[in-house]
């Protein structure tokens, strides 16, 4: 598609209807983060509490096991660390260039 915000008035979708399901994915909200979640996979029980409590759908799973955190979108809220029953997630200060 055309780059967002460059279409002429006659090209924009009629009535402002959005036809790009889930397209917010391109907004990299990870840039908001000031704290970074670090998972200790040795302690993780794959209970998926972090997965269900994450406001930003950042916990990536495969076949019922936790794989990684989507740092492109993680806003660093720390709910996962607070709620993890085995305390295997630690929030550490985000270091940026």
């Amino acid at each position: 598609m055309t780059q967002p915000g460059t279409e002429s008035w006659s090209e924009v979708p009629q009535g402002g209807t959005v036809l790009l399901p889930g397209s917010t994915e391109r907004n990299l909200t990870g840039s908001w983060r000031t704290k970074l979640p670090i998972i200790d996979f040795d302690k993780c029980t794959h209970c998926m509490i972090c997965w269900v409590m994450c406001p930003d759908s950042c916990f990536k799973t495969a076949e019922g096991t936790l794989q990684s955190v989507d740092l492109d979108h993680c806003k660093g809220c720390g709910i996962c660390a607070s709620e993890c029953p085995v305390k295997c997630i630690e929030m550490v200060p985000e270091e940026r260039d």
């Binding site: 915000g5 009535g15 402002g16 209807t17 959005v18 399901p21």
Partner: peptide, 14 residues
């Protein structure tokens, strides 16, 4: 998605 928020980048065009 019908009735999305339209901001200064699109409202005018719509």
């Amino acid at each position: 998605t019908y009735g999305a928020l339209d901001f200064r980048d699109y409202y005018f065009e719509h």
